[in-house]
Structures are given as C-alpha cells and as structure tokens.
Nucleic acid binder design. Structure first.
Length: 881
RNA sequence: GCGCGCGUAGCUCAGUGGGAGAGCAUCCGCCUUACAAGCGGAGGGUCGCAGGUUCGAAACCUGCCGCGCGCACCA
C-alpha cells in the first residue's frame, strides 16, 4: 500500500507509556491500511459527519482539538458498531482572512493586489494555499482524527463552486436573492461589506456631544457620538407626540458648517426621554437614520469614502473619520454651538471580527438573501422534530435567531471567493447565468464575490457531489449529526439548515434535511473557567501539550470536561492526570501480559468463576450499558468518568489485587482467571478506544496478539452488555469485602502500622457477613498475618455488627489514636441515630413517605444504635491513657 | 432593556424530592516485585441569601444578591 513504517510488535512492555514513540507511526499505519476510508458501495448502514470546515489559514487551536475529539469519538464508536462511518474532512476558503494573509505577504514585497490585477492575484492565493495553507490538516493527524483523507474537499474546488453557482441561480430565480442599496456593515480596512454576525460589539469609551442646530427661537439641540457625520445630516427628527417641538415640525433650520437647510420631521423612532429628544438624521451613515430617511423621503448624503475619509467639500475634506470628529467639534465650539460634552461616554461600537477595525455603516449596493421564507423552514424543521437539537436547552437560542433574521448581505468586495454569477448589461440589465450559459455580448460579470459562509452552508451536501445525484449522496446523505460549538450556531448551522432544506425541498422527507441532529458543545476555557484570549495570555497550544503528554491525554481531558452544551475548563494539571490514567492502563495491561492473561477461547460461564471474576464481569457489563446510555445523549464527561472509574478503581485497585493470590496459586482457578482478566481488559480497551485511540490500539494489539494478524481495535466490534454476567450476589459480596478491608486499613493507618508489616489477626463473623470463603482475600488485601500460637489480642475492631477483627499489635497499640478514632465514629453514629429518630418521630413522615423509605430509615436507625453500643464497649475496653 | 444559563469542598465540576460526591490540590504513612505518572489513609462544604411548597429541599416556586452569555437599543 504505502511505505508507512511498521509499528513494532511488543514482546513485553516498558514500565512507562511513551506516547511520542507510538502515535505518529500508528496514525500512518491506520491511514495506510485504509482504516478511515468509507466505502460508498458498502452494505453497512451509513453514518456520516461532515467536519465543520476549518479555515484554510488556521492552525489547530484547543477549540478544534475539543470538537475533533468529540466527533472522532462518535465516529470511531459508530465504526466499531458496524456502520459505514464517514468523517468528511476539508476546509473553507475564508475569503477575508485568506485575502488578508496574501495581501500582507505581497505588501512586504511592496506589491498591492491592484498592481497584480484580479486574475494574477487569485493565482497567488491559490499558490499560497498550496504552499502554506491547511496546516491544520497535519495537526489533525496528531490528534488522531479518523477522517477519510481520500475525500478531502475545499470550498473553492470546482465541484463545490458549481454547487455555489447552482444554488445561487435557483435562489435568484425564486427571487430569494436580490440586489439593493442599503446601509451595510463596512470594514474600511478590509474594504468590504460584512454581514451582521461578522460584527463584534463592545462597550467602548466615546463622547457624547450636544450641538445646537439653528438659531434663536427655532434652535434645536441634538446629541451625537459621531459628530463627523453631521456633514451628511439631512434632517432633525423629534417624536410626533413631543409638545416641546411640535411647533417646529415641518420647519427648516440651517445645518451648521454647511449652510444647508434641513427639515425637522416627526418620527416614532425617536425616544423623547433620551437627551433632548431631538435626533440628527444622517441617512447615509446610520441604519436607523436610513430608515427614518426612507419614511420621510429624505436625501442620503454620503460624506466618506470606502476608507472612511471625509469626502464632503470644505475644510474637513481628506480627513480620516477619527481626525474629522475633533476637528468638527472644535469648529462647532468656535461658533458657540457645543452646549454639552460628555467624555468618556461608554457606548456599543461595532468592530470587524476579522481585523477589529471600527465598522462604518455605509450606504451601498449589495446582494442579499431574502431569509424570511428560508428561516421559517429552518425553524419549522426543528419545531416539528425533523431535526433535533442537543442539548435541548439550546433550541431557544436557535429559535431566537432563526425567527428574527434580517436579510443576509452576501456580497463581498474581495477577489478571493466565488464570484457572483450575475452579468450586468450596458443599460443596467442583469442576468444570472446557469451552468454553461454564455453572457450576452457587452455584459460584464459582477465584480463581487460571495460570503464564505454562502459556500460553507452547502458543505453538508456539496462535499458529496451535489447538485449531481451521486452515489455518495444516496449513501451518506443526510448527515447523522452536525457537532459544533454553540457559538457557531448562527454562523453556519442555521445557514446549513436554510440551504439544506431549500436544496432538497423536493426530495423525499428522509433526504430533505442536512443532518438529523445538531449537537452543540461549549467553549474551552482555562483552568479557572476564564475565557481564553491572547491579550489575557491564558491560551494554550494543543500541539505543545500533545508533545508533552500525548494526544490521548489531551483528548481524554477534553472528553472528561465535556458536559453537554457547557464550557469546558482545561488546565495542565488535568492533562497530566489523564497522562497518568493512560499510564495506568498501560501498566494494567503490562501486568496482564506478565500474568499470562489471554483473550483466546470461550469465556467460562459465570457459575464456574470465583467471586472476584464474577464481580468484575458484572461490573464490566453494567459499565458497558451505562456508557451506551451516555453516548445516546452525548454525555462525554459522564461516559469518560464511568470508564475511568471502572478502569482505575474496579479493575486496577480491586480486581487486580483480588486475583493476585489466585494467580500465584496456579491451577485451574488461575487459568480461568487469566481468561477473565484477558476478557475484561480487552473489552475495556475497546470501550476506551474511541476516546483514547493510540494507547488502546497499542495495548489491544499486545494483548490480543492482533498485530500479527493485521487486526486493529478500530475494527473490533463495540462491546455489547451480556446479561448472563450481571451478578448482584457477587457485587454484594465484593462490596462487603471492600468494607472490611477498608476498615482494617483505616485502623492500621490510624495506628501507624507500616504497610509492610503483617499484623497478626483473628477474624470472626465473616460467615454471617456472607463472605465466609473470602478470608484469604481479605488477609491479602489488608496485609494481615495468621495468628500464631502466642496470639495475644491487643485491639479489636468491630465492623457493621457481624465481623470482628482481633489484632495482636505486640503491645504497640496507640491508645490515644484508637480512642480518637472510636470517638469520631461514635459521634458520626450518634448524629445518624438522631437524624433517623427525628424522622421516625414525625407522624407526617410515617404517614406520607413511601414504605421502602421508612423501612430504610428504620434499618439505618438500628445500624446506628448497634454501632454506638459496639463502639462504647470498645472504648470501655481500651486500657487507660 | 429583553432573554438564557450559572452560583455545591481550596480549584474545576457532577448531583433535580428521601443517607452531601468526583478529579485535581492539601495533610499523614509507604519504593507492599504492573504502575512513585504509583499504593494506603485522612482532613475539608450553614449546597449564594431570604421566604415559600412538602412528612422531607442542594434539587421545586418567588424575590434578592453576584457572575457569565446571547439579542436588541444606545442620537
């Protein structure tokens, strides 16, 4: 296939896991073996997720790492479950960002894009993309993303571009795309229009200046934060019900500095409570003013160019908007027209989300999508359950957006992107051409390109060959889920919904949605729950952490924090803990291998197995069932924690310790246990594989000898719970053993007995506690010695009324420590008793609480009373001082 | 301004009507031959505040305080 290096099979494992030694070779092997490939003609049911396309200029940040971990986990499990699982990779062309990158590069060579011309510039961008773009793709490999690389797509590919042109034409013909002169968000630095959601608002320090317009009785005072726009004022507006100004409505006043005369109009939009209740109206530079202007037939006077430099004739001509502002205020002050000034005046200011430049509302001719009918469909698809939102609380946000959409400005004054398929005729005609059609002579194509999200919105099906009816679409569409951040809900999820529903509106219902479920995750935050930001200096580099701790550690940490729809904090301590967990697994497997664990042959029936074997198999099967349930709700944190708990606490801390004596004993019992041990570990590795693919593959191959057979845990079946191995009796028994061992360990620790010291003891009452046959196990785990002929009891420990442990501590009993321990236990028991008695003395409780609850409290009361009696006796039996 | 969410151990978070939990951090003791990236043990919380519903509230309701987020407006 390829010449990917062959990872070396391991005869034995070193005592520490070294991720760096296995990860990259393992990934290349997976790719070489075609493990990630999805076959269109497969008989298996399809399960497809398209990658939320990353930006071609981007690098893998921890947010990607988080999202990809979750998607990869889902995809790997589905693959193991027997689905033809496709994770579709690719990138979007990021119009503004990419053009910026290439323009900056050119600028450093002293060249502008205009020097090159459109065609040559676009050629340069493609060249840049080939040489430097898409670094994120290699970084995804570090993470272990099991995407089908043979299907990589880019929004500017010919096929995807055809999808863009096709849907544009359809929308245009359906009159859902139109061109209009409107106030749009203009970035004077990027020199393009941007959509509402590409504007970030922040509360900034500004100024509020009150200016007197007109003179004498007709004077009226307006307040503004943008004095420079007054050059373009074409009216002053007041509220129609405002008595103060009623007599002025319909009159004209002189606009200072310009000599122009402007009318005073009455408009409902004006808030009479704010400021003086009078507003200057600049229709060409403010969206609200534009609306007022429309209602009153006012002219729009543009006073700035596309770089936000003043174009109005006069002394301010050529000044930047921020230079013009103080200059104009100064000029007005000179005329005595400034009646009040407030600085700083904090108000919301929009910034370009790409370059942070202050947005300039600008009157210009742009292309828009008429979203109302599309958004209605997008809302309805969720409302009527065709598309599910997970977690469901997020629906509200979705509806709030989709039900209140403004039309979407889709034209961008850029060169990099999909050029709008409209040709303009010499007399203002416009025609939208279908594929293969030639424009009439003399027509020129619209110079603008489309918003990048216009093409991203098609991603769920353009990647599969739409508008052709391809086998891929037949097999994999609609996508099973779209998994992405809640912050992206509006950026492309809603748009994918709108376009997906529109493009497939005539398809059969099962095909008419882009995905069955929208799964939303939170944002990655730092270890204190703070938002990560470069200025705050709390960002982390996922690559660096993978270098240090391995990809699995990063993945597991992120998965452990992934509560649905909730932000996930991450810190280095936690990645370290995950690294430790991987190492724990490593060593558990190492122990298994040393102990001769096997995965070959039938698993013995439960009846023939020891208590620990039956217990761990029961726990394993409960764990499988729990994990499956958590997956159904995308509860990654809970399923990860469940698996960690099972692996570390049940398997490593208890099971392995419980079977050591059995293995040492040898014989048939040991043989059965070796088989169970192999089964438990092998299943655990399969369960963990979607979360931590690298270490599990390494260990699974070592454990199953699968490396010699060309196998992979990736294609091993996902575990199914086996009810025959659920065993309440064994679980109760081990719980009792754990209780006894725990109490003995506490006694030892309180007494300062060294872990290495075998304390001579005599155990009684194990039979009545139901663990009569388990004395040897208890002795091993609690490190107890057999009582000799000279056994002399120096201390006694009563556990839960049944079991008594008599210790011969050879006179070294620490009476004070023991008294303190017993006193503490008695206090706890007394508190418990008091609580129980209070409830049982309450007639309301006895009368209304369910029987089983009352019975439970009675049991607890009895247990507490017995404990107090026992402890009191033990205290009395202690020697003095 | 409208809406949503959150407030539980030092930190980060689970826990949605019946004995306050986890991981990390802290303290004590251990190299007990899978693992010191480990093992055993321990300490630590009036569950934001105040009312209410209930036999019973961390959980349900109301109000308040604090924090975060989204949307709109901000002349």
């Amino acid at each position: 296939m390829t010449n990917a290096p062959e990872p070396q099979p391991r005869a034995s494992l070193p005592s520490q896991y070294a991720p760096a030694e296995v990860e990259s070779a393992r990934y290349e092997r997976w790719v070489a073996d075609g493990r990630f490939r999805a076959e269109t003609d497969s008989d298996k049911p399809a399960y497809c997720i398209v990658i939320p396309p990353p930006n071609v200029t981007g690098n893998l940040h921890v947010g990607h790492a988080f999202e990809h971990t979750l998607i990869d986990t889902v995809i790997r499990r589905k693959r193991m479950q027997g689905f033809e699982a496709l994770w579709q990779p690719g990138m979007d062309h990021a119009g503004i960002a990419t053009q910026n990158v290439v323009e900056r590069k050119l600028a450093s060579e002293g060249v502008s894009r205009h020097d090159l011309g459109r065609e040559a510039f676009v050629e340069k961008v493609w060249q840049w993309k080939e040489e430097s773009g898409g670094q994120i793709l290699d970084q995804m490999k570090r993470l272990g993303d099991s995407v089908d690389w043979d299907r990589e797509r880019f929004t500017m590919d010919e096929g995807l571009s055809r999808a863009v042109r096709t849907i544009f034409k359809r929308l245009y013909d359906d009159e859902l795309i139109y061109r209009a002169e409107r106030i749009i968000n203009w970035c004077p630095r990027c020199q393009t229009a941007i959509s509402d959601i590409e504007v970030d608002h922040s509360d900034d320090d500004g100024e509020l200046v009150s200016i007197r317009y007109g003179d004498g009785e007709n004077a009226i005072v307006v307040a503004t934060t943008r004095a420079e726009t007054m050059l373009g004022d074409t009216a002053v507006a007041v509220h129609p019900g405002d008595e103060r100004y009623r007599h002025l409505v319909g009159t004209e006043i002189e606009l200072p500095l310009t000599g122009r005369r402007i009318p005073i109009v009455a408009d409902e939009h004006v808030d009479p409570e704010f400021g003086t209740g009078a507003v200057k109206v600049t229709p060409a530079h403010d969206p609200n003013d534009f609306e007022i202007g429309r209602r009153h037939g006012l002219p729009s006077i543009t006073v700035m160019d596309e770089r936000a430099v003043i174009t109005a004739h006069g002394p301010f001509l050529g000044l930047d908007r921020f230079e013009a502002r103080p200059a104009i205020v100064a000029a007005l002050r000179e005329q005595g027209r400034i009646v009040a000034e407030k600085r700083p005046y904090v108000h919301a200011v929009g910034h370009c989300s790409r370059c942070k430049t202050t947005i300039e509302p600008r009157l210009s001719k742009q292309w828009f999508v008429k979203v109302a009918p599309l958004a209605k469909e997008a809302g309805d698809a969720v409302r009527d359950g065709r598309v599910k939102v997970s977690p469901p609380e997020m629906e509200k946000r979705y509806f709030a957006w989709v039900d209140n959409l403004h039309d979407w400005c889709i034209s961008r004054q850029l060169w990099w992107g999909h050029r709008i398929p409209i040709w303009h005729g010499p007399n203002g005609e416009q025609v939208c051409l279908a594929e293969g059609e030639e424009p009439p002579a003399g027509y020129v194509q619209d110079p603008d390109v489309l918003d990048t999200w216009f093409s991203s919105a098609l991603w769920p099906f353009s990647t599969m060959g739409w508008p052709d009816e391809t086998p891929d679409l037949a097999k994999f569409y609609p996508n099973a889920i779209l998994l992405t951040g809640y912050d992206i809900l509006f950026f492309w999820v809603a748009r994918m919904m709108m376009f997906g529903l529109y493009a497939f509106k005539d398809a059969e219902p099962a095909k008419a949605i882009p995905f069955g479920e929208i799964v939303l995750h939170g944002m990655v935050r730092d270890q204190f729950g703070k938002k990560m930001s470069k200025s705050f200096g709390n960002t982390i580099d996922p690559i660096e952490w993978m270098d240090r701790y391995g990809a699995d550690s990063l993945r597991f940490t992120l998965a452990l924090g992934a509560n649905p729809g909730v932000d996930v904090p991450i810190g280095e301590d936690w990645v370290q803990a995950s690294r430790n967990f991987c190492n724990k697994l490593w060593n558990a497997t190492r122990f298994a291998l040393i102990s001769g664990a096997t995965t070959e042959g039938e698993l013995p029936a439960a009846e023939g197995l020891s208590t620990p074997d039956r217990w761990i198999l029961s726990r394993l099967n409960h764990t499988i069932a729990a994990v499956d349930e958590f997956y159904a709700d995308y509860e990654f944190a809970k399923l990860s924690d469940t698996l960690r708990h099972f692996a570390w606490d049940d398997v490593c801390d208890w099971y392995l310790e419980l079977i050591k004596p059995v293995l040492a004993e040898g014989g048939v019992a040991a043989e059965r246990t070796r088989r169970v041990l192999g089964e438990v570990l092998e299943t655990l590795l399969r369960l963990l594989h979607p979360l931590i693919p690298f270490v599990t593959e390494e260990l699974w191959l070592a454990l199953t000898r699968g490396d010699q057979l060309g196998e992979s845990v990736m294609t091993a079946p996902w575990p199914a719970p086996r009810e025959a191995y659920l065993d309440d009796v064994a679980e109760a028994r081990v719980t009792a053993i754990q209780r006894v061992v725990g109490e003995i360990r506490r006694f030892r620790s309180d007494q300062g007995v060294k872990p290495s010291q075998r304390v001579s003891t005599r155990l009684t009452g194990l039979d009545s506690a139901g663990i009569g046959g388990d004395e040897a196990l208890i002795r091993a785990l609690a490190r107890l010695g057999e009582p000799g002929d000279d056994f002399a009891e120096t201390a006694s420990l009563a556990i839960d009324g049944d079991v008594t442990v008599a210790f011969d501590t050879r006179g070294t009993i620490d009476v004070a420590a023991e008294r303190a321990r017993l006193a503490k236990d008695r206090t706890a028991a007394e508190k418990e008793l008091e609580q129980c008695r209070r409830k049982l003395g309450n007639e309301g409780f006895l009368g209304k609480a369910p029987e089983n609850v009352v019975a439970g409290i009675r049991e607890r009361e009895a247990a507490a009373a017995a404990a107090i009696e026992r402890i009191t006796a033990a205290l009395a039996a202690l020697p003095e001082g």
